[in-house]
Simulated assay, not measured.
Amino acid sequence: MRFTGFITSLFALFLLLSPGSSAWAEVGIGATAPADAEILLDGSREMLDQKWTYWEGPRFSSSLPIKWKVVEDPVDAGTVIMSDDPAAAGGKYGTADIVTKKKYQDFRLHVEFLVMKPGGNSGVYLQNRYEIQVLDGDKTKHGMAAVINETESPYHAYNGTGKWNAYDITFRAARFKDGKLVEKPLVSMYFNGKKVHENVTINKVWGGANSGLDGGNNNGFGITDTPGGIKLQCEGHDVRYRNIWIQPLDLKTADTDFKE
């Protein structure tokens, strides 16, 4: 019986740690990518230009090459990417946002960011549609780490300005049948190693046409059956990013919950 119990426990541990399982997760600052994940941002200019481009939405007013800067990590060794772009001065989102060239459906995403000054504003967009907010000082449904306008901000998990923070996200895209939406997108998330969102339904694309894909379709309710990239928002603030990786998934059931 003891041996059987040991084998059972070992199998459970294998399921938890297996990169192919949606239950697997290494979360928090410094989390390493599983073998089948793709590194999207390592702090280098080369990877920025190779894997990212500008989102040319209705308000786009910058130009390639990407004007985001490669700067020294203010905390650790190495370089990171700084979101400040002159085109976005004054908080004009949509003018200089960057998006991955590759598009995704279901996925596990890890993003590390650092807000340099109070009030710093950016955002992480899933499928270039659904925003996970990055906004220092805001604890509302429009605030830090909120699934924007869907949940309250889990501000208690935020490390504050001048410190690195980490989002670990599992996302399931909307499902369609005969061209009609039958299942809304779902998201679960850890913020700095703390579970803050579990199977949150995303009801629409918020923010209008200048915000992301489908934002201008039927007031954001007109979600289309197309994949989208990971987007980082530029609002003229100094927000820095590093260690971004993504693991494509195929979530058969409507469940994005995952274990730490």
Rank of each mutant, 00 (worst) to 15 (best):
E150V: 04
N165G: 08
K180H: 13
D178T: 12
G179T: 11
A146E: 00
N165Y: 05
K180N: 12
T151W: 01
P154V: 00
A157W: 00
G160V: 10
G160Y: 10
G160Q: 11
Y158Q: 03
I148T: 10
W164H: 04
Y167R: 03
R172F: 10
W164G: 01
R172S: 10
G162S: 09
G162Q: 07
D178I: 13
E150T: 07
N149Y: 12
E152V: 07
A166P: 07
R172Q: 14
A173K: 08
D168L: 05
A173W: 02
N149K: 12
K177R: 14
T151C: 04
N159S: 13
T170P: 05
G162L: 09
S153M: 05
I148Q: 02
N159D: 08
G179K: 14
Y155N: 04
G162W: 08
I148N: 00
E150D: 12
I169L: 10
F176R: 03
W164V: 02
P154R: 00
Y155V: 06
T161I: 15
Y158F: 14
A146P: 05
T170H: 14
D178R: 12
R175S: 05
G179Y: 14
A173T: 14
Y155K: 04
K177I: 04
N165H: 13
W164L: 04
D178S: 15
T151F: 01
A173G: 13
A166M: 07
K180A: 13
G179C: 12
R175F: 05
R175W: 05
E152H: 09
T170I: 13
G179Q: 13
A157I: 01
D168A: 07
F171V: 03
K180V: 13
K163L: 11
A173S: 15
Y158M: 06
A166K: 02
Y158G: 00
A174R: 06
Y158A: 02
S153A: 13
I148P: 00
T170M: 15
R172H: 10
K177M: 12
D168H: 07
T151Y: 01
I169F: 06
A174W: 07
I169G: 02
A166G: 08
S153L: 04
H156S: 15
S153P: 11
R172P: 06
A166H: 03
T161N: 14
G160T: 10
